[in-house]
Design a protein around this nucleic acid. Structure first.
Lengths: 347, 347
DNA sequence: CTGAAAGCGCTTACAG
DNA sequence: CTGAAAGCGCTTACAG
């Protein structure tokens, strides 16, 4: 009995067009197709044209899992943010994700809830996928997290914050100086003639605390610093909490003539509470926020705040990461995108 | 010359603890470890205990890429939402993502920008990763998208919407009846004595249009339907646009005694515009929104709206999907999570 | 510049 | 219930 001819199958059992299919059709080896398609130099330009044409005709698309397994590197980029309920971070996610996708990367998102150990656990899980790169919010991480990042060898860019200028071996980051922004807004209020400026901080994460330091700095410069004007509350930020804090402050410190809220949602809540209570803003008390979130320009009165370039930060960080993943080193490892005081009716 | 003994390496070159490491240490085959760890039945209970212990001791974690390549199925779940700038969808994403992660799945997010062909393209890209499951917003997709979903064989649950009850072969979905919700809110306004109720619609996606139909239905029932009370605008939803629409409506149709905005952000903007213009709400005109977004309970006056169970939808859809991925079929393939009229001061 | 071969770390029929 | 072997679809030294 003659050997039965094995059935000629052009594709594998999965029905997928594979690298070998392209190689066969183009009359070259799989290795060459692999190199040609990835634009590796040291491939005959003529060949790379032919291979690409055949690949397109067959509708070949590389299998991400196979590529990841073989190269020990996936087409995922992991991004860690504290919360999804603060539009600030959603903006960051949105712009970073858009930039990364355009470059062919998939975004793997992790939400840390401002919890250092949850961040660590999340990072461990994400690192299992051997991401090609990592985007992480802030510079304040626990030791284990920092070690994980270091040992992983995965390129990493930090978002939103910049290290103190005297720090050696600073990590890659894109952001702005939170302390400076806090001080600048406080100076703006001083320039408007305010003298008893309260600071209302919630959540109390690292960046909020830096804004607080900025506020202290500016008031100390002016000889107007007073510790009892600090209102610290670890609860998460919200409009409702802003209203509550506003009422507390006005009741307990009636001499206050301005309040700097660490985030716009608090300030918006305060503005609404002021309307409800019939407290005139800014004549009786000025109100200012931070981040220039949606709606701040619609409030009554419109809200003075600090515009932070979060969409630009997300995009610039993604670009820096893309460069690092290509093995390039960025012109500026710490990229300062600045901020802008937005003077509106509430101050 | 004797054969040189090959260097005994306990781990592979990648430094990773692999399945074979566990197999060797446990004195069983790799296949058995694979089966034991995945809780496949038909494994000696004694063995599975031993294997699990060894695996834990070595700190073994399966490589997702290898698993995906071998099994043709990854531990990714893809989720497609229209926008990240509407907190509605962020809530959906947040709750779904949380539920999926707890079950060991990574979320791959895609943003379609309400664009059918962008949705299609995104789905194509995501499907390359052979996701274990798919979550997609709405029931309105183009033919190519529907085919992609069908051919992919990937379990899929639709979010937010439910099919018309008479539809055969309905897809899996978790949501509520948008039309009913639109009608219910309109009836609420009628019950408050309103007679000339305008409907302000923006974005004009499928779900907004259904709310519009609900509004029409309720007004037709009451014999009060009038086409000129429909305000349709394809622009994206925002507070600012809500203010603009409010002003337009009040100017051009001063007899209107209530406005139903298709989303809360519009209604919030209208409320702020009313304050600015000195138009009394609700005495002069009632205002209502949809979704009960952040801040609606803080406005002045507080906003009447429809509370939609988006966090529950995200979680329930993720749970249904998890079941489908296990091969189970859900009790209810179409899960109606309802809605709730929230009567506040603005009506 | 190109190819043959090994290998990435799993899963899964196929036997037993 | 368990194991040996093939295979998933790529990449990457290693030769030439």
């Amino acid at each position: 009995m003659p050997d039965p001819t094995p059935p000629a199958k052009s594709h594998r059992a999965t029905g997928r067009v594979t690298l070998s299919d392209v190689a066969r059709a183009a009359g070259v080896s799989a290795s060459t197709v692999s190199r040609a398609l990835r634009g590796e130099r040291a491939v005959d330009p003529a060949l790379i044209g032919r291979v690409r044409a055949v690949s397109d005709k067959l509708g070949y698309v590389p299998d991400p899992a196979a590529r990841a397994l073989a190269s020990q590197r996936s087409d995922h980029v992991a991004i860690l943010i504290p919360l999804l309920s603060n539009t600030l971070f959603v903006d960051l996610l949105d712009s970073a994700q858009k930039t990364l996708r355009a470059a062919g990367y998939q975004t793997l998102m992790g939400v840390t809830h401002y919890d250092a150990s949850e961040e660590e656990q999340l990072l461990r899980e994400l690192l299992l996928h051997r991401p090609a790169g990592l985007l992480i919010t802030g510079l304040d991480h626990n030791t284990a997290t920092r070690k994980l990042i270091g040992h992983s060898q995965v390129p990493c860019v930090h978002l939103m914050d910049l290290p103190a200028s005297d720090q050696p071996e600073a990590p890659y980051c894109v952001g702005f100086r939170q302390t400076d922004a806090g001080a600048a807004l406080t100076r703006h209020l001083l320039a408007q003639g305010r003298r008893r400026i309260a600071f209302a901080a919630v959540q109390l994460d690292a960046r909020v605390m830096q804004r607080l330091y900025g506020w202290r700095l500016a008031l100390q410069e002016a000889g107007l610093y007073e510790p009892t004007l600090e209102w610290l509350n670890p609860a998460p930020s919200s409009l409702a909490l802003g209203g509550v804090l506003f009422e507390q402050i006005m009741q307990q410190r009636p001499a206050v003539d301005a309040i700097f809220f660490c985030n716009d949602d608090l300030a918006q809540g305060a503005l609404l509470a002021a309307l409800r209570l019939g407290i005139a803003v800014p004549s009786r008390v000025a109100i200012a926020g931070f981040n220039d979130l949606t709606g701040s320009d619609q409030m009554l009165p419109t809200l003075t705040t600090v515009r932070t370039p979060r969409a630009q930060i997300g995009e610039a960080a993604a670009r820096m990461l893309l460069g690092l993943m290509r093995g390039e080193s960025p012109d500026r490892p710490q990229l300062d995108l600045g901020f802008e005081i937005v003077h509106r009716e509430s101050s």
